[in-house]
Nucleic acid binder design. Structure first.
Lengths: 149, 149
DNA sequence: TATTGTTATACTCTATAACTATA
DNA sequence: TATAGTTATAGAGTATAACAATA
């Protein structure tokens, strides 16, 4: 019975609620929810190229640039030349970046835990699975609509 | 097995995919996905106050202001005094606004239809229901964390 | 006193386009 | 030729704070 538009709005409302709650939880640390996602993407053991970071965060390369500039200015990330590809650069967290990231993770713990208050584990699993199917439907490049007017 | 963070990222990726696809579908009309949401909220029979619009679109009042300014400048919406509340103003679509909205709805039809390509109707229903439960979990005002450091 | 809406202000995210250096 | 990254540029959305008018 749900229409495509209802799904779209439900997704919008859910995402914005999460985004705002995360922003609020990290505001005292002076980090936005989007910056937190970037730091998360870099929190693994392996430094990433801009392209890899773009894929992992679902943010455009050009969008990531100003974000990286902010994080670099704050001393949370650093960049080094790629060992084999002269064009690429590898980005990673600094020591301070790792320290701050751990703090941010802790400060956002409450937001993640509240999800499970109304969504027991099996429902969370189902929701994640459905969202991923949704994404693979959306991922197809848009069929170029022939302008009919 | 899915963690809170996996859910958060799945939600982010899904929403951004939808948002970009909608933006792309409406770019030729010079309208953003967010503006489309506002026009949709106003497409009913009843004019809305700023507060009602804010609730319906999940956007902050102060955020809506510049959006309304854009839409008003383009002649898509108009405002009139509230009949009984001297503070409030009622916003509605103009005739041109209704015409444009119908066009936008048509141009975004493909985006909505693709959802059902990988998500048959029962799954869409389930997804919407889960998203709404997610929202009611997030809607609770954040427990004010006592700064411990 | 609280609420509706406005104004002023600032910043972040977003993305297109043009460019360089390298592959 | 294509790809990785940068720079320049522009605009949209976001939200806080201070304010006027009304309830």
């Amino acid at each position: 019975m749900a229409t495509g538009h209802e799904l779209a709005m439900a997704l919008r409302v859910a995402y914005l609620a999460l985004h705002r709650r995360t922003d609020a939880a990290l505001a005292a640390d002076g980090v936005t929810a989007d910056q937190f996602v970037v730091l998360w993407a870099l929190s693994g053991a392996v430094p990433l190229t801009l392209g890899e970071l773009s894929e992992k965060t679902a943010a455009d390369r050009n969008t990531l640039r100003p974000m990286l500039a902010i994080l670099e200015r704050r001393g949370l990330i650093e960049r080094q030349p790629h060992p084999t590809d002269g064009r690429a650069r590898l980005t990673s967290l600094t020591g301070e970046g790792r320290r701050v990231y751990r703090k941010l993770w802790k400060h956002s713990e409450g937001v993640r835990q509240e999800m499970f208050a109304r969504l027991p584990e099996p429902d969370v699993d189902a929701l994640v699975a459905l969202l991923r199917r949704f994404v693979s439907a959306m991922d197809r490049p848009p069929a170029k609509a022939a302008p009919s007017g």
